[in-house]
Write a protein that binds this DNA or RNA. Structure first.
Length: 605
RNA sequence: GGGGACGUAGCUCAGUUGGUUAGAGCGCUGCCCUGUCACGGCAGAGGUCGCGGGUUCGAGCCCCGUCGUCCCCGCCA
């Protein structure tokens, strides 16, 4: 193939087929760079080879050609050290134009890339680009590594249906109308959740699937309406068993990308994540928030007009260098703007330190030493003078604040931490990519809350999904009925650099517990039976304890490819409005099709 | 549903305070060229300034609406 020939192939007769990447016409001598997915080779066509030369003359970029010729080692000074095949060239004896090509709207050979609208419309051209070819080669390798690992661990790959039953919880379903049953619909699966649990009931012990999932929600850079999960489930697991398996296949996946991970990953509870990072998917490429609550005594809070009893938090952004006066002021106003009228404010540490008041000086000293401690924990010994510190305080007597619990402040400051991280990342090379294990900060977050208060419907919803087992202790303490907010779930997320890669849980395997959970979610027994009767039935026929996890393959590959959008690692993705610009989907359908499906379009906008 | 950015030649973009015939680079077409590799030289073609309306003597530029792409919030068990 085009990318494979080297100096040791000199003298060999070869046939190459590929696309014309570039053509350099010197009159009597024409150079064609021939490209296929393995790489690029230079072909030389001399005018003495009349027929071939005429064809090379007619050839244009993106023509598909076949070349017969001999590999020749390039002479001194003619070599191109920037190309893997730069030491050789193929001297053409015969040339065939297998197919012509219209002038493409953008060139797959260019480094500069066109806007996404054009790229997506002509996706087949975009996918010819070296970068995209590399992304999909990587994706294939990663998927293969995961398959190999899981099969090696005794997992069985089993497919589950795409056309299934709508479940009203969770995301919006994509629906498929039934022709045979007027007025009824299949739903595309949001995940194979129930099927994989049933497979455990069936005795399949260790199941996995690289499964397509569908969710009809609004898109983001890291969210597509159809996406691929590495879905697995096992019987008789401890949480640790599942962590080990997931760490195992992630290690295999990263190995396929040339990165050696060193599991086990860091673990923290949900409460710790919120307290230290203000978010349930911490990005640990930045230092944690520093809790200064105990440094700010009651007395000091009164003087500084800081609310009692609420957390005071410091953020530290390393490697920013010493900020100029203007930069500090700009930052200050940015922070103000970020918090708006929430009642959060920032304390000027420098002014505190330079204050003639000794109490303030002391306080500043205490804050600095606390922050320094975190910085040391984070990256050995980092010079604090090179970092920027922001101290966030809840202002005294801000009415709105009275309703806010500490969690709200943690989350709010956590959001600022990420915003500033992103801002300084570009400027000061905060996340320098060395493409080694150190760039990839994994964590397990455990003990998620079981329930989430839904302000809209004034009900408790399942935070993960309703098949998640609550902590044994919380069941025994009766919290399922009288203290839902405190119930912890046996649920866990695996997080990488602030992105949720996947989540899972130990499931409920007893019918009575499952029924009680449904009831606690406000479902009557009749409703539960109507929706999940088949599942409750299955639980009664000898269900093993089981649990599992599902990880987003697209997101894993995206991060490994260094991309910031899933569209770079999905061959035929959809736009932010869920449109496929190449095939132009979705489209209206004919009245005949609608009649077959017993559907009528009610409104057209 | 809400907020923001963008939309000018095939592509990437510039276009001053609203003022004559809307520009550049790349690409494309033709001719020349035997050592290029982002080849080079000469000549040339190419525009519904996203679309619709308005203000104005005059709109790429101002106003209103609309469509599309991207990012974020809501949403995503």
């Amino acid at each position: 193939m085009c990318g494979e020939l080297r100096a040791e192939n000199a003298g060999q007769d070869v046939v190459l087929m590929g696309w014309v990447n570039r053509r350099r016409d010197h009159g009597g001598l024409i150079f064609l760079d021939l490209r296929d997915r393995s790489g690029i080779t230079q072909v030389v066509v001399d005018e003495k080879v009349t027929a071939a030369h005429a064809k090379a003359d007619a050839a244009r970029p993106e023509y598909v050609v076949a070349v017969k010729g001999r590999v020749r080692r390039r002479g001194e000074g003619l070599q191109n050290p920037n190309m893997p095949t730069g030491e050789i060239e193929v001297v053409a004896s015969e040339l065939l134009l297998l197919n012509e090509a219209k002038t493409p709207p953008f060139s797959p050979a260019e480094d500069a890339i066109a806007n996404e609208e054009v790229r997506l419309k002509y996706r087949y051209l975009d996918l010819r680009r070296t970068e995209m070819q590399a992304n999909f080669a990587l994706r294939s390798r990663v998927a293969m590594a995961i398959r190999n690992y899981l099969v090696g661990e005794g997992f069985l790959e089993i497919e589950t249906p795409f056309m299934t039953r709508s479940t009203p919880e969770g995301a919006r379903d994509y629906l498929v109308p039934s022709r045979i049953h007027a007025g009824s619909f299949y739903a595309l699966p949001q995940s194979p959740q129930i099927f994989k649990q049933i497979l455990m009931v069936s005795g399949f012990d260790r199941y996995f699937q690289i499964a397509r999932c569908f969710r009809d929600e609004d898109l983001r850079a890291d969210r597509q309406p159809e996406f691929t999960q590495i879905d697995l489930e096992m019987s008789f697991p401890q949480m640790d068993t599942i962590f080990r398996v997931a760490e195992g296949f992630l290690t295999a996946a990263f190995d396929a990308a040339g990165i050696q991970l060193a599991p086990p990953f860091v673990r923290m509870t949900y409460d710790e994540a919120i307290h230290n990072y203000g978010i349930d998917k911490p990005d640990m490429r930045l230092p944690a928030m520093v809790d200064l609550s105990d440094v700010l005594t009651q007395q000091l809070r009164e003087t500084l007009k800081i609310e009692q009893g609420l957390p005071v938090l410091a953020l530290v952004i390393p490697k920013t260098g010493r900020l100029s006066g203007t930069a500090r002021k700009a930052l200050q106003s940015e922070v103000r703007h970020h918090f708006g009228d929430t009642g959060l404010d920032s304390l000027d540490l420098d002014r505190l330190a330079m204050s003639p008041n000794q109490v303030f000086q002391l306080l500043a000293g205490q804050i600095v030493s606390r922050v320094h401690l975190e910085l040391e924990r984070f990256c050995g010994d980092e010079d604090l003078t090179d970092a920027t510190v922001i101290v966030v305080t809840p202002k005294l007597g801000t009415p709105a604040l009275w309703n806010y619990d500490p969690q709200w402040i943690y989350k709010r400051v956590g959001a600022l931490r990420l915003e500033l991280g992103a801002k300084f990342a570009d400027k000061h090379k905060l996340f320098e990519q060395t493409h080694t294990a150190a760039d990839f900060k994994f964590a397990w977050v455990t003990d998620f809350p079981m329930y989430e208060w839904n302000e809209e419907t004034k009900t408790w919803d399942a935070a993960h999904h309703p098949f998640t087992s609550p902590h044994e202790d919380d069941i025994r303490a009766g919290r399922l009925t009288n203290d839902k907010g405190a119930v912890r779930a046996l649920a866990y997320d695996v997080v990488l650099n602030g992105t949720e890669l996947g989540s899972g849980s130990i499931r409920i395997h007893r019918k009575d517990v499952q029924a009680e959970i449904f009831r606690s979610l406000g479902m009557t027994d009749a409703e539960a039976h109507e929706r999940f009767g088949f599942f409750l039935d299955a639980l009664e026929y000898g269900t093993p304890p089981h649990g599992g996890i599902a990880l987003g393959l697209d997101r894993i590959v995206m991060i490994l490819a260094g991309a910031t959008s899933l569209r770079e690692v999905i061959a035929f993705p959809k736009t932010a409005k869920a449109i496929d610009l190449m095939v132009d989907a979705p489209t209206p359908v004919s009245d005949l099709q609608l009649r077959d499906l017993h559907l009528r379009i009610a409104t057209r906008s």
